[in-house]
Write a protein that binds this DNA or RNA. Structure first.
Lengths: 334, 334
DNA sequence: GCGGAATATGTTAGCGCTGAGATAACGAAG
DNA sequence: CTTCGTTATCTCAGCGCTAACATATTCCGC
């Protein structure tokens, strides 16, 4: 609890017998420094336990080593994974992420964005394309680079990194059709909040309709996705449409819940009812029968976005779209 | 991409026809302001789209509305949930969290801590009690309040918020003993990184030894916990000790994996082999048989810690320990 | 109608750092 | 030796804001 005076550049400078600016240059590895001077300065920093004040640095240089990150939620595993990717890309740099959680609310996103911008971040990483007009304006008018993650089915502000959810849905539909399933149902969650789930759904429908099929039945849980929701919603769907032979779930959480329902209800998975998810989560692959699903590369999305943003110190001349792709995981449930 | 001059306090002041200081006071709701003046200032802020520069504010007031957060990992669901609690508590305030991920490495924690401190945060939230000497020194010497989360089995720097993992383990042991299980095994993960898993393990052993029992067999996966690890490690354990009647897992992820192993291997859960987890994750409760486990209140831990930290602007006189408790979830697997 | 609260606003000096330019010290080249 | 280019360092203003204090202005009670 000792209240000691926090050392500043001035203290270090005095102790090392150089000017403040020299210390500053040593710290930032900028400009030529004599080996001898550098050593003296480094030693002084260590003896004083000096830690630079970023607020001052940021003010003086009108810039910061901060990356603002806006995520819709932390309860969906997917976003912590993206965040991991971001942290991984940042780990070797001096940048720090600053995370805000929007709860899928564009208005809240706008508020959080302006408090993030108040720290003069070097870049902003956000999710999807659903922004308020004001958000879009703030971003376009500012000097910060912007990455929009997860989705590449629309025009980005600067950089989009993700996959085409429409295509992923389409591939899902094709997969099921090729394996002979014809009476296909859909179990989803609230897509007011989740535009991407809807795109996948639409992709599935498109694949079906190209083969002259439509979704046999469809049930959506009114709330966020969860294992429990998947379990219950599949039960509801089957009550209404007992004759379906395959179900596409809005994601793996829901699909795993569906698998549990089948276990509990004595339905033989695949033989009686095929299950298909989205994301390729570990849990789905650890099931007694690995889940058939689509791998979205969340970690890679976060990592790639940050790497791309740090590549250049200015906003890109042209809009950049990076497709991190997806893979069908065959699994054993469809 | 318009490069317009970013408005500052001075611009707002000029437009509203008041001094900069008055604008500053309006923004911070500090000191008496005439209703009329306030309106003019607010209007000026809006027309200019002024966003205060926090770096400048922070420098001038030598403090910030930042909370530094140090988490060991984001891959374990537990920590995103803690983070959610932190965000929830912060949502109604002007504070922003700034998150660092240490990968269970005390040295890395130290590095990240010093870059967090460079932003003059109001408080630091960290995990557990495993810190380097330097970390401890930095924290005790600084003016920031510190909360150490998850664990209350040691002496905190300022505030500890969490549960007694030893007691949770003990309760687990008692639960199994009371239900007649006598040949108890343990499936764990790498506890070099996870001190708390070890405390729970020790608690279980203590309960057993009080009844004259010991762990019949014990197997630890050398790596982080995961569903797959739980599945495989239970298989290994059973190969070595087929006669056990119950298994305690280091956490729910592992236990769910164990459940899957039983499914695949045709072992009747509870009747032939009881399973017990830790954490009370949703996934465990969505299983066809809800998992018997201990609910740790991760969200509450994060939320409580931040609330407690924001209660007072200074470090507490005395060390504070807040027990967020735990509950045994009966479930159906033990 | 005057002293003294209470209320509302202005003035001023930094906070700790960085950027731009000035200065010094030293060889190499003419 | 002077001139010039390098290399290494210093000087100093100022980033945008806030704390502390100074200065009006208003409204009381007596």
């Amino acid at each position: 609890m000792t209240q000691y005076e926090v050392p500043t550049l001035a203290h270090v400078a005095k102790l090392a017998g150089v000017s403040e600016n020299t210390v500053s240059r040593v710290i930032r590895n900028k400009g030529p420094i004599a080996e001898d001077t550098r050593n003296r300065v480094v030693k002084a920093i260590e003896t004083l336990g000096y830690v630079p004040n970023r607020a001052a640095g940021s003010l003086a240089s009108s810039g910061s080593l901060l990356i603002g990150v806006l995520l819709p939620s932390l309860s969906n595993v997917v976003f912590p994974e993206v965040l991991q990717g971001i942290h991984a890309a940042l780990a070797t740099t001096a940048y720090q992420p600053m995370v805000g959680v929007t709860n899928y609310d564009a208005g809240k996103e706008q508020d959080i964005l302006s408090s993030l911008l108040a720290w003069q971040p070097a870049a902003i990483v956000t999710t999807g394309f659903d922004h308020t007009e004001a958000t879009r304006r703030m971003l376009s008018n500012s000097r910060v680079r912007v990455a929009e993650l997860m989705d590449i089915d629309a025009e980005p502000i600067d950089v989009a990194v993700g996959l085409s959810h429409r295509q992923a849905g389409y591939a899902t539909g094709r997969h099921l059709i090729e394996r002979g399933y014809r009476r296909i149902g859909y179990v989803g969650h609230d897509w007011g909040a989740d535009r991407r789930a809807r795109l996948r759904h639409d992709g599935v429908c498109q694949a079906l309709s190209e083969t002259g099929l439509t979704l046999r039945a469809e049930e959506r849980f009114d709330g966020p996705s969860s294992t429990m929701a998947g379990r219950d919603t599949l039960a509801t769907l089957l009550a209404r449409a007992p004759d379906i032979d395959a179900v596409v779930f809005s994601n793996d959480d829901m699909a795993v819940g569906g698998f549990f329902h089948c276990l509990a209800a004595g339905i033989v998975v695949r033989k009686q009812l095929a299950l298909f998810g989205f994301n390729g989560l570990d849990i789905g692959q650890a099931l007694p029968m690995p889940l058939s699903t689509v791998r979205s590369n969340r970690f890679l999305i976060g990592k790639t976005a940050v790497e791309r943003l740090l590549e250049s110190p200015t906003r890109p001349e042209q809009r950049v779209v990076i497709d991190t792709g997806f893979d069908i995981i065959e699994g054993a449930t469809a």
